[in-house]
Design a protein around this nucleic acid. Structure first.
Lengths: 209, 209
DNA sequence: CGATATATTGATCATGCGATCAATAAGGTG
DNA sequence: CACCTTATTGATCGCATGATCAATATATCG
């Protein structure tokens, strides 16, 4: 067996150790969901004792909330960077939808779904979920507004359209957690719906590489 | 305090007791979510010992799956009955959307959200979720097909449209679990989106009583 | 080099979970 | 009424959770 003989963890500065613990929590959440983010799971991941994890965190509720925010904010950053390289609103919107529904995001989706559920009993998590929802809606809304101004999008209310699209993305992804899901089928669903909602012709959001 | 002195539960037939336990599980799930469906919670609700609840159920996984199916199927039945009284496809679709997003369904929504999450580790539950999703999509698809035939709906693919709408309904409801939610705002979002997707004029799905 | 501050640990507690089983008591039957 | 089937229970096990704290070991500083 490869059961490593546990040796005492090297002494490190609080800042460094704290960052390691947050990172371990992030990995646990992505691999097994937010509900699996426990003192012991994080400790095992970080090569440390549960007591040390507890020592660095005020409470599990706060740790779960931080872990959620960390995961989602990081993905938002990455996607923002990816979108910056796209020429126009239609390409940006198409890339965004394809990225969010490409079928390789179940790990992040399960984090969202569990956050909605756990948020009912974890106020800090609920606040974090609200903030992240707003951030994503904001990104989407800006693209739509830009498209209305410069790419022929027809959206009388960009704010509402952004919520509608975000709702459908979240709903389809959540459903896909349990349903056998052909990613391309899901992608086609969201493309068709969004093209219809924004008055675009079919295929307008197709990503051409 | 009103802590009732526990007396031995009256002896009942297996069928009757089993039904009581299923009903108690249903109430627990609606009040506190699927994750709170435990032997002890059900037992307290049914006025019985945990051992008896265990005696009547093969496993908790199966009990949770049954509870989910019971709750969702019952709601589908009720809604079907309600829709039967509506004159045409537009009225049926409008009533369906208003019912699903009227802001008084958080108890059922939390059951759906937790079912998606728990379904990853409970095969019976996942199968049940799939079946119920199909049933709801079927109801929606039939209404859309009828609308295309007789009420001017423009949906080249009724099957896809039903999945799109169901995705948006589930997504918006799940988000509303954590977000302060003005129900009328959500209703307006979904009405607007669906009217756009089906080529209907604004207000076509408004429910007129 | 020795002293001090503190990062780290092992042990332990209280709680809640599903599950099991012998013991008990209630109801139906002869 | 007596018997016997079985619905119901209390006790208990093994496991996992978050939390706490005195004890220990290590890095840093004087």
């Amino acid at each position: 067996m490869s059961t490593p003989v546990r040796t005492r963890a090297a002494r490190k500065s609080p800042g460094e150790r704290s960052a390691e613990i947050v990172e371990a929590a992030r990995l646990v959440a992505l691999e097994q969901g937010l509900m699996a983010v426990t003192l012991r799971a994080i400790a095992a991941r970080a090569g440390v004792t549960p007591a040390l994890v507890a020592h660095y965190q005020p409470s599990m509720d706060a740790l779960v909330a931080d872990t959620f925010a960390h995961i989602v904010a990081e993905e938002l950053d990455e996607l923002s960077g990816l979108l910056a390289g796209r020429p126009g609103p239609a390409e940006r919107l198409g890339t965004l939808l394809d990225t969010l529904l490409d079928g390789t995001r179940d790990d992040v989706t399960i984090v969202w779904v569990e956050a909605w559920a756990l948020g009912r009993r974890n106020d800090a998590l609920a606040a974090s979920v609200r903030a992240q929802m707003d951030a994503w809606q904001d990104l989407l809304r800006r693209i739509i507004e830009e498209g209305v101004d410069h790419a022929g999008f027809r959206a009388p209310d960009a704010d509402a359209a952004a919520w509608q699209i975000l709702g459908m993305v979240d709903g389809l992804n959540a459903q896909a957690l349990v349903r056998w899901g052909d990613a391309s089928e899901r992608g086609s669903l969201i493309h068709g719906a969004v093209e219809g909602m924004l008055g675009l012709e079919r295929g307008a959001l197709a990503v051409r590489d």
